[in-house]
Amino acid sequence: MKTKVLLATHGEMARGIQSAISLIVGDVDLDIMCCYTEENFSLEEASKTYLDSIDFENERLIVCTDLVGGSVNNEFFKHKQFYDFILISNVNLGLLIDLLLSGQTLEKEDIQERCKSELLNVHYFDNIGEVAFLDADL
């Protein structure tokens, strides 16, 4: 089953992330939804139209949104009662790259695990402390 990924964000964030992804990963399938960039934008309409366009029999959908508690995520969350898709919020570039590179083969539980990966958490870089912590294993 093919996995589709939609990145839905406030403003042009999705388009910006898409440009970063194209530099790092290259050519890859990613749907984006930049919300509220036009005066007459309707989140309800845009999200429903997108979800109706998905062939859920043959495709698996992962919707990634920018902010937990934001309207974009709230709207897609409401849709989860009617459409069967995976919803992930507070996404960052690292997670998206991971999903796009491995998403086709990961089960739901694996994706859930990946979301918890320390590598993808927000990192506060402290002062330059101790030096080289490489394992000299060779």
Partner: peptide, 11 residues
Amino acid sequence: HGQVAFTWTKF
């Protein structure tokens, strides 16, 4: 860097 650490390593 990105391309190397993520994309190529996975590939």
